[in-house]
Write a protein that binds this DNA or RNA. Structure first.
Lengths: 343, 343
DNA sequence: TTGTAGGCGTTATCAT
DNA sequence: ATGATAACGCCTACAA
């Protein structure tokens, strides 16, 4: 750790004014000798301009913030990679802020981030509170929301239809001969939790292949394992022949626990997840999942952001991404295999 | 997106001076009427102090940066969670900067991040270049490195011994009766790549159970799948009876590809990874892995950081974390099962 | 081409 | 208790 070096010291060492230093370092032409002196002095002192002073003066930080509730979920990592991809070449750096397991406020995060540290904000909140929406509207920088924001909020949004995603999954399970389909949901005080439950109810109302509904303690693998324990406790006569999980981590947890309990997958138990994270394909049996196109959503968000920066003042827009069922091994029944069904 | 509100406007609306606004908002006692006026004006305008101006004045951003090459690798997410855990209660926010797949410079990232946007830096670099080391030494904020930094660099470091980790894995495979052990490494122009290769060579020199060495194109699942293809191409007579992979993503890729090719795991092929990411336990067969304690290393890094901030000027310290073999299904042979071997 | 000076938004010192 | 004012480090008219 070295002392802070400022432009003044560089100027003194080089024997020129601070303006000359600033100019040279920003690529504005100067006399050759001056340029030389400045560069050598800067190098000697290991000088890098202070980002704070620069941002204060310029009113821009060259940073875009990506804020999520739990970067521990791979789906958000993929989304982030999409954002990164969409922003590449824009000259801005992406910084990620996650509330992680500590339930810090996404709210205060948004506020301070958008007041200085970032020129724009991409956020994918699990919970949509009125305060959060207000903070987003009050933010002095462009904001793009990935997720459900409710109607008539004048903000750029990238959304998908996870209700429909659940229905797709359910229809698929029914079509592969499953009759007693349990739904393992995450917390219903979240937007995805509510939407996916609605989707399940809709699907059941149509086809009737209902099973127990479990609300797990989170959207995590561990929560999925616990959920299976509850299902197992129902006893052999009431156990489901398929599980529809509200996301892939839950699905993976259910599969692991069911495997541990000696169940045969997919013969005795079909499993379908949602999100289609990259591990879904890798797992054995590979996990059937409904892709909500996280990466593409991230990419679209970045696109909206760049367009808004280029032409501010345009009305808020919504980009829609359709869910897509990806059939893999975890949901094949004997019947499926015979039919050679694929996505 | 709303216009920027400054302290001046709040002061005007409240009918007080900017000093009073600043004081009230920073919790310094004021007359009740003043406090009231300021708070109501601030609320009405939705005012949040500008982080840039504040950081410039205070010389501190209340942010700690965590920089890694690829946040897409779950091991870094876990490390990040450790850092977060270790910092909780410090009042600082953690921001993550990842170069992702774009090979932006970790170097320039370090420089600008440490010059204003962060009060401290935790970094876990894949490659250790002289320039990076110099930039780290020149950083005007405390820096903690997780990884290998070479000898005699006066920086706080959290390290582990991944050579030893590889040796542990190899010994385990030999002990479970594997004779032809392939090594699937990541790029050797990285510190982990080099260290793990050395570990493998050491282990082979001791026990002799050598197999082909493959250098995959990255530390990723896909690279692991490709690596298995190469192994498969060797033909039945030269195929290994075990794979030691340089990290878990490679190992998972190898397993997936081998399963696709119809291999029986672990009977025909034992697999061991390194890192012990959370998915290692979940996968089926569950993956034997050497834990490098990513989370704990993150926690220790945060600890070092907080101590250095509390008492600057103390000599650089190194924290060491020992690798630990975690035996699971992927490496059990018939013999193992009979012996009831566990970790 | 170069230097002087002002100001970005904030906090803190110093009068009042 | 409150207000005027000087920094923090930088960039950029504007003047020389």
């Amino acid at each position: 750790m070295t002392r802070r070096t400022t432009i003044v010291e560089v100027a003194e060492l080089a024997g020129v004014s601070i303006s000359s230093v600033s100019r040279v370092l920003n690529g504005i032409p100067a006399r050759k000798g001056t340029e030389e002196k400045v560069r050598s002095a800067a190098a000697q002192l290991g000088y890098t301009p202070d980002a704070t002073g620069r941002a204060l003066k310029l009113g821009s930080s060259l940073q875009v913030a990506f804020a999520v509730d739990d970067i521990g979920n791979p789906v958000y990592t993929e989304m982030m990679q999409g954002v990164e991809e969409g922003m590449s070449g824009s000259g801005a750096r992406l910084v990620v802020a996650s509330t992680g397991h500590d339930k810090h406020d996404l709210l205060s995060l948004v506020q301070s981030l958008s007041r200085g540290y970032a020129d724009a904000l991409v956020i994918s909140p699990l919970q949509r509170t009125p305060e959060l929406v207000q903070a987003l509207l009050d933010a002095p920088v462009p904001v793009v929301v990935i997720g459900d924001l409710g109607p008539d909020v004048p903000l750029d949004v990238v959304r998908t239809d996870s209700r429909r995603g659940v229905v797709l999954a359910h229809e698929h399970l029914v079509a592969s001969g499953r009759r007693r389909i349990a739904f393992v949901n995450g917390p219903t005080d979240t937007s995805p939790g509510r939407a996916r439950l609605e989707g399940f109810q809709t699907a059941v109302a149509t086809s009737g292949a209902a099973g127990p509904v479990i609300q797990a303690s989170g959207f995590t693998v561990t929560a999925g394992e616990e959920a299976w324990a509850q299902l197992e406790a129902l006893g052999p006569r009431h156990r489901p022949d398929a599980v529809l999980a509200a996301n892939d981590l839950l699905a993976l947890g259910v599969m692991r626990a069911a495997l541990n309990a000696g169940r045969r997958l997919p013969r005795q138990l079909g499993v379908v997840g949602i999100d289609d994270i990259q591990f879904a394909r890798i797992f054995s049996p590979s996990l059937t999942s409904v892709s909500l196109q996280a990466r593409e959503r991230g990419r679209l968000a970045a696109e909206l952001l760049l367009e808004r920066i280029a032409t501010p003042g345009t009305p808020a827009r919504t980009r829609f991404v359709a869910p897509e069922l990806v059939v893999r091994e975890s949901s094949r029944s004997a019947t499926d295999a015979a039919l050679g069904q694929s996505s």
